[in-house]
Simulated scan of single mutants.
Amino acid sequence: MPLKSKRPRIEPLSPPYDEEAAAALGLLGPSPIQLFRVWARRPELARSIAGWGSYYFSRRSALTLRRRELVIDRTTALCGADYEWAVHVAGFAEKAGLDAAQLASLATGTPADDCWDAADRAVLEAVDELHTTFDLSDEAWARLVAVADEDAALELVLVCGWYHAVSFAVRALRLPLEPGTRPIAAK
């Protein structure tokens, strides 16, 4: 495996931000992480991403916080995206009720691990199947809809795909971990 550079390939913006970048960053959150500051180099890109994020992080999402984080954490772990994994675990794992055994399973385990109930298992099986086959079998779809509903299943597919794209970006950009966060393999 080739060595990965330790330096980001695109430096995140640093304050002071110009007016357009500051406005775009304001849409992405009060404390813009490095990834958002890279996107803000192209404010129109940051604004379009903010529109998607504001939907699925809102109360309008059909996915519960826990299910959304199961999808994101498992997807980023499967993609080896330490940066995004670390940001989500630090920011949402506790709120989503994920314990140490579940985080370890998300990182390196399987949906069959004893720490998962049937509903979580159906979500994780769907994520794993999407990751490996880029599709869902009729059986996986039926199990997912049985524990969620069609709207949540649709959002799961979209969030899983989105976090594949985010994982590609953070890996290719070589973003270092945010302060106070830990990579996937950290115990």
Rank of each mutant, 00 (worst) to 15 (best):
Ala22Tyr: 01
Val166His: 05
Asp113Val: 02
Leu103Gly: 00
Ser58Pro: 09
Tyr163Ile: 04
Leu98Thr: 04
Val159Gly: 09
Asp128Asn: 08
Arg171Met: 12
Ile72Phe: 01
Pro111Arg: 08
Ala100Gly: 03
Val123Phe: 02
Asp120Cys: 04
Ala101His: 11
Ser14Val: 14
His88Glu: 06
Asp18Met: 09
Thr181Asp: 01
Pro176Cys: 09
Gly51Gln: 15
Pro179Met: 02
Ala148Lys: 00
Pro179Lys: 05
Trp39Gln: 13
Tyr56His: 15
Arg41Leu: 12
Leu65Pro: 02
Thr133Arg: 12
Ala77Gln: 02
Asp135Tyr: 02
Phe168Ile: 15
Leu65Phe: 01
Val71Ala: 08
Ala46Asp: 10
Leu177His: 08
Ala119Ser: 15
Pro183Arg: 07
Ile33Asp: 11
Glu139Ala: 15
Val166Gly: 02
Val147Asn: 06
Leu35Ser: 11
His88Thr: 06
Arg68Gly: 03
Pro15Lys: 11
Ala169His: 13
Ala142Pro: 03
Glu84Lys: 04
Leu156Trp: 04
Arg68Ile: 05
Leu70Gln: 04
Ala90Cys: 00
Ala46Asn: 12
Leu78Ile: 03
Leu45Met: 13
Pro179Cys: 03
Phe134Gly: 00
Leu177Asp: 11
Ala81Pro: 05
Val87Tyr: 06
Ser5Asn: 10
Ser48Arg: 15
Arg66Met: 01
Leu28His: 09
Ile33His: 14
Ala40Ser: 12
Gly26Thr: 09
Ala86Asp: 09
Tyr55Leu: 12
Trp39Gly: 04
Val87Asp: 00
Leu144Gly: 09
Val71Asn: 02
Leu78Thr: 01
Tyr17Ile: 06
Ile49Pro: 02
Thr76Ser: 02
Tyr163Cys: 04
Val159Asn: 06
Gly91Val: 10
Phe168Pro: 01
Glu20Cys: 00
Gly109Pro: 12
Pro8Trp: 03
Pro12Thr: 11
Ala104Glu: 14
Arg47Phe: 03
Val157Gln: 13
Val89Pro: 02
Pro176Arg: 10
Asp73Trp: 00
Ala107Gln: 05
Gly109Leu: 06
Leu177Gly: 09
Trp116Arg: 07
Arg171Lys: 15
Ala140Leu: 03
Ala112Pro: 07
Ala126Asp: 04
Val123Tyr: 01
Val71Pro: 01
Gly80Ile: 05
Pro183Trp: 08
Ala107Lys: 06
Leu136Trp: 02
Ser61Ala: 15
Tyr163Met: 03
Phe92Pro: 02
Asp73Gly: 08
Ala101Leu: 13
Arg41Lys: 14
Asp151Cys: 04
Ser58Gln: 10
Gly26Ile: 04
Asp120Gly: 05
Leu35Asp: 09
Arg174Ile: 07
Ala186Gly: 03
Glu11Arg: 14
Ala46Arg: 10
Thr133Lys: 04
Ala101Val: 13
Leu65Gln: 10
Ala101Tyr: 03
Pro111Asp: 06
Leu45Ala: 14
Leu65Ser: 02
Tyr55Arg: 12
Phe36Asp: 15
Leu175Cys: 08
Ala23Asp: 13
Gln34Pro: 07
Glu69Gln: 14
Pro2Gln: 11
Asp18Ser: 11
Leu13Tyr: 10
Thr132Pro: 00
Asp99Ala: 10
Pro43Gln: 11
Asp135Ser: 12
Trp39His: 12
Pro43Gly: 10
Arg7Met: 11
Phe57Val: 07
